[in-house]
Design a protein around this nucleic acid. Structure first.
Lengths: 193, 193
DNA sequence: AATTTCACATACCGTGGGTATGCCAACGGA
DNA sequence: TCCGTTGGCATACCCACGGTATGTGAAATT
């Protein structure tokens, strides 16, 4: 038989995977925890043992998803040296990642209500929004952007991209991604001096 | 005794008022429909008779709130003749209205999850977002803004303002409203040619 | 080999949204 | 003014589902 640690890890993995699939498909309140457990080959007891509550499982799924998005953004930005190009590439990657229906249903629609807006914001800050602020600060420091408070601007841009991501996923039109990216770049471009 | 139509209208009014108070304070899922009814001086039966479901009551509350916000935006824009000033004034009014905690909890946090993002978007379009698109089209037509697809831009700005509104209400800092408005104006200003 | 630990399974409870039905006062025609 | 009808609710009930308390057996520890 497998060791206990292995078994535990495997159960946790299975619960997270099945939870993610269902949360993405049916939304938090459309998901029945017992069915998630059955899909993972265990019972509710296992889920409560690992995550404490339905919201606890959901929180972990959100953390995973946010981490993936942050990775994609960082990776895209890493392909460039110029901070300006890094910003644009990062925004592109964020929009592209967010237009995955699974990602956006979980991260952008349900998460704020289920976890509370404050906790959601902290998690968002800790992953991708933080990078955005940093990028903007670099650009202000190097004089590419006019001196200005960065925080409000970062929140505006973050909100713009979040909403755009949901809109893209919902519209389904693949050409919209280009149009939205272009509009976003135009917006940021306007800040240059 | 009051006529049936009057009584009906009064019950409906009371349910909506109490529902709005509670939805704003406790969030959709924190609200118990029976308590809403009790607060309105009736029972659950009345609520189901009028609105069909808890979500139905919530939907009507959202419609009311959106209408109020739209009115405030239209009123603010009406004080100006210049389309550009109208846009700025409208955005200001929207941010200001959205920073009311009751408005934003209902309209911006719970509504997308409870009603579904698509329905929420349609309602938003029908009220305030529609005005934004119109204003932008006017500005493009008159040459103040560079020719460009207006729809993606409107969604970006709409999302930016929605997130900013929640952020403002949550932060509680009154000077943030100024900072955010300034940042937003700078963003739009950058689109001028 | 005995004991402890712990990762789950099982059985159960309470809350709350939704529904089916009953009641009684307002309406509307004769 | 009587009487049937309508409809705006109240009452009683159902049951899905999140959460909890407790049991169990195999792995880990001694």
């Amino acid at each position: 038989m497998a060791s206990r640690a292995e078994q535990r890890a495997e159960t946790r993995r299975a619960l997270l995977a099945e939870g993610r699939r269902r949360f993405a498909r049916d939304g938090f309140h459309g998901v029945v925890l017992e069915e998630v457990a059955r899909g993972a080959g265990v019972t509710k007891g296992a889920a409560y043992h690992h995550f404490g509550s339905k919201a606890g499982l959901f929180r972990t799924v959100v953390e995973e998803a946010q981490q993936e998005v942050a990775d994609r953004v960082t990776e895209a930005a890493g392909h460039h040296e110029d901070p300006w190009k890094q910003l644009i590439a990062g925004c592109r990657a964020y929009l592209s990642a967010g237009s995955d229906p699974a990602i956006q249903r979980i991260m952008l629609i349900d998460a704020p209500t289920v976890l509370g807006w404050n906790e959601w914001r902290e998690m968002d800050d800790a992953s991708s929004a933080h990078h955005l602020t940093e990028a903007l600060e670099t650009l202000v420091a190097s004089g590419v952007l006019a001196p200005q408070p960065v925080e409000p601007l970062a929140r505006l841009l973050s909100g713009a991209m979040n909403e755009a991501a949901v809109w893209l996923a919902e519209s389904g039109d693949p050409t919209s991604l280009e149009a939205t990216t272009t509009a976003l770049e135009r917006l940021i471009e306007g800040l240059r001096r």
